[in-house]
């Protein structure tokens, strides 16, 4: 009897071990390392706040706010070729983007004045901003898309993996023009830029540290690193709609361009499709004009 009881106990233990392993394996799939059960995978979780508040260093899900006092941004070490003229040109392009309510893109989306909704699933982390910006997809399960077929994007192509409790996010494939180009601390993004973000939860999950490192031999002499520390919004927080931006609102246009330099104002005006159409019509008219007349003009 005792022998069979022992076997029964052993059997139960084995079954329990197998069950625990099963749960761990299900939860741990995706981007998380061996780590805690359900680190990235978990759906379900109907336990409400108690479940949500349990600290899992491998789950970045939450609504994250960036306070103005929670940024550490040193000055970038720029290559000599990045002259004031080059920086002014970038500032001019960004002013045109601002004037016309173009989506933010990276890096601006990570400091857009509103909380970021970051949700971590089995295969990717999705960042949905409450702002005029494309969502960010950060994939766990693949290498970068072949640049020959990838459509460059204002938020690039992001992949990630865990190194201990730090999520390493690697982004390339930036669009050459779409989105705001300026990088905090100086410099700007180009289509050749490479961004590495190191994300780690601090203070038992109440703070998310994201250390951004930009490399781009045409812009930075040494890799440029700065850090933001996001604070987790309270359990009652619900994402809200973004703040509207109407590029055809004359009052807003006057307000926004008031601070522009004359060159920025001119560039912003020249970017309108009306100005582009007028310029095209002018060119067409010039082409059809008799040569003598065109010369005379």
């Amino acid at each position: 009897m005792k022998y069979w009881s022992g076997c029964r106990v052993a059997r139960i233990c084995l079954i329990c071990a197998a069950s625990v392993a099963m749960i761990a394996a299900q939860g741990g799939r995706g981007g998380t390392p061996a780590g805690p059960a359900g680190a990235s995978g978990g759906r379900g979780g109907r336990g409400g706040n108690a479940m949500a508040s349990a600290f899992d260093p491998h789950d970045l899900s939450g609504y994250w706010e960036l306070g103005p006092e929670n940024k550490s941004i040193p000055a970038a070490d720029l290559v000599p070729g990045v002259t004031k003229m080059v920086l002014d040109k970038v500032a001019l392009e960004d002013a045109v983007s601002l004037r016309w309510c173009r989506p933010l893109g990276l890096p601006a989306v990570m400091d857009n004045g509103r909380p970021l909704d970051i949700q971590q699933g089995k295969w990717e982390i999705l960042i949905a901003p409450e702002a005029n910006a494309s969502p960010r997809h950060i994939y766990f399960d693949r290498p970068h898309i072949d640049p020959n077929i990838f459509d460059p994007a204002s938020v690039g192509d992001s992949i990630a993996h865990w190194e201990g409790d730090t999520l390493i996010v690697d982004t390339v494939g930036f669009h050459p023009k779409d989105g705001r180009m300026a990088i905090p601390g100086g410099g700007f993004r180009t289509e050749k830029s490479h961004l590495v973000e190191r994300c780690k939860l601090l203070k038992s999950g109440a703070v998310l540290s994201v250390s951004f490192t930009w490399t781009d031999p045409k812009v930075f002499r040494t890799p440029h690193t700065y850090e933001f520390r996001y604070t987790k919004a309270g359990p009652g927080y619900e994402p809200r709609n973004g703040i509207p931006c109407d590029p055809f609102d004359p009052e807003r246009t006057e307000f926004i361009t008031r601070a522009f330099t004359p060159a920025q104002k001119a560039a912003a005006e020249a970017a309108s499709i009306e100005a582009k159409a007028a310029a095209a019509a002018k060119r067409a008219a010039a082409k059809s004009m008799p040569a003598k007349q065109a010369v005379a003009k």
Partner: peptide, 20 residues
Amino acid sequence: HMVVSKQEALVVQERNGSRR
């Protein structure tokens, strides 16, 4: 595109905007 976390299912399409 849907991501399912412990607290929500976040849905996006290939443009601005999301649904949770």
